[in-house]
Design a protein around this nucleic acid. Sequence first.
DNA 1: GTAGGGTTAG
Length: 778
Amino acid sequence: MRKSKRTHRKLPTASIDSVPVQANPEFEKPKRNIRKISSQPLDPVQEIPQIESEMRQQHLEKATVTSGPNISEQEVISSNEKIRKEATLTISNVPDIETTPRLATESAKAMLRAQGSMFTAVFQNFTQSRDNSFLMLGMEQGCVSLLRKCSSLKPTKQIHAHICITGLHTNPLVFGKLLLHCAISISDALHYALRLFHHFPNPDTFMYNTLIRALSLSQTPLSSIHPFIHLLRHPTLFPDSFSFAFALKAAANSRHLRPGIQLHSQAILHTLDTHIFVGTTLISMYAESGDYDSARRVFDEISEPNVVTWNAAVTAAFRCGDVAGAWGVFRRMPVRNLTSWNVILAGYAKAGELGLARRVFNEMVLKDDVSWSTMIVGFAHYGSFDEAFGFFRELLRRGIRLNEVSLTGVLSACAQAGAFEFGRILHSFMEKAGFLYIGSVNNALIDTYSRCGNVAMASSVFQNMPVARSIVSWTSMIAGLAMHGRGEEAIQLFHEMEESGVRPDGITFISLLYACSHSGLVEEGCAFFSKMKNLYGIEPAIEHYGCMVDLYGRAARLQKAYEFICEMPISPNAIIWRTLLGACSIHGNIELAELVKARLAVVDPNNSSDHVLLSNVYAIAGKWKDVASIRRTMTEQSMRKTPGWSMIEIDKVNYSFVAGEKPNEVTEEAHEKLMEIMLRLRTEAGYAPQVRSVLHDIEEEEKENSVSKHSEKLAAAFGIAKLPKGRVLRIVKNLRVCGDCHTVMKLISEVYQVEIIVRDRNRFHFFKDGFCSCRDYW
DNA sequence: GTAGGGTTAG
């Protein structure tokens, strides 16, 4: 991007009136000077095209970790005196945090309760006397903090009623908070936000801007175009740079290019397109919508870009996948600030260029908490959870300020590593430091506890959230129950969510369908699939189809699954076919497996796991020649089977076991214990090894030897040897647990009277008294 | 009284 003097500019031809948003009766014909509440509530949620959601990939590629986070609770707390003071500042509801942390949280809760009763008292007073100005002092703040507790419309309306009675409804700040709350924190309250606006007497441009901003931050950002058009047509008011900045942000959030172009044309007509704030937002908007050329053109037209504009240009390059170009723009920057460096870090980290990110990070003279968070989140996102722990350790050592992003990042690392104990330490710290007043932190905790096998703790976090539960909180909890095979409870929770007024989105349905498929609830799954389309108007994405194939496949309805794929309106990808191949492998259907493998050979020819799955099918049927043939192909094409590994956390240290690794002190101890366990299982529980999980055509004894070395068995043996009696064994495995290991775990849980929780690639297995929570269905 | 660039959970 070269800076050039502006000579001419091209005016986009489309006009703002043709934005692709369904006509809104309230804004279509503005009745000037007459404001009334529409009898038909708006439902902008249905007007906006649904954005395709992508299922988050599991990042468990990392094969070896020798030790976990290894940080004690005391270390975390003692090295963060300063941090806790800052947390007090951020979370205004938590006073005196550094002296009596637990009490402080309690008093914050009490304060919220007190505000609740004060609200009732004030409400009653006012209905009687209409004059109690003394009690009104501080009510503005009180209403705002009460709003934070409301996740549905009903209590919000009560607060609104209170606001009206106290005369606060003409206060633009309180009004704005209420609008923002309705638009952002409550899924189904956009219509209410609009009605609120219509009640506001003689709104000025500032008020319009508040509404545009609120809608731009809602689940349906493009709905903010309506008040923008209204403002354009207003006889006396005009959109200003704020209006354009908010509306363009909405276009950027929606990732729809057309409304963005139309807003751009309007900005040109109002001579605001080169306004430094509007121009910078235009660059982001074009980059978010994938129009790199336009983003560059806008940048070239800004005659005096400041450092923020330059930073936006670097980000634009990264967003459009031009990693080298981003570095080029960065190098040409006349002035750089810390954010410029953080932009580069984030760009590299998101692009998966973690080596480059680390190099830049090491070169940075000045780093802040954002720089550290970026590294933690970046490494955690790509599955390098041990590296993420490393950055976190270093962050603590240097006394850098902790923020909710670094904490959620390290929680994500815990979730992947199954580091339950450390997750608990973080939880206790965050409670004391007041971080639980941030929604995302609660959501990350729910996810971490679920993935660490403790769905009860996840549920406790979910039930006790001191802030409103968002769609993410509900979905995380549903997903947590689903992972543990508690399908009925997941469905129950989904109904509670619907009743609470939170509107499910595409990802909620992925979790729900997953819950059905892992609990064998075929009919329920089918019903939810149609409910999603017909009631909520959510167009199924490839992930939803994948869930349906899994649902039929697991329930042994293989032919139905195959027909379902053939009738899909979008072309099936490798994951869809692989799901069906997995089902064929579970149910031993050779004919269909061969057919599916042929499809996979076209879509994704070099995937080793598909070959392994097919050879599994042959092995189950005893077709060793076919197994050998597949293995030969894999060798010829130098494909390698993903090595299986398992991890167990003992005293906050994570020990990993990899099949066929070189013996060391730990593995030798595990092997020794395992031999002892197996002997006891044979004599006391009549165990006989199941060898069909072994892929090779080898002698029986050798096969038996091979399954006995599976990493999850070693991890369990090590856990039995090291953990005190009565403690739960929590094991994380990167592949699906094999039939023999599953049997062994059940027997160990019975003979040794121990609870074992295994998280495999697909789900959780909770072994107790000789039974597994998956009911042998996985 | 409101903004633009960097890190956030399902």
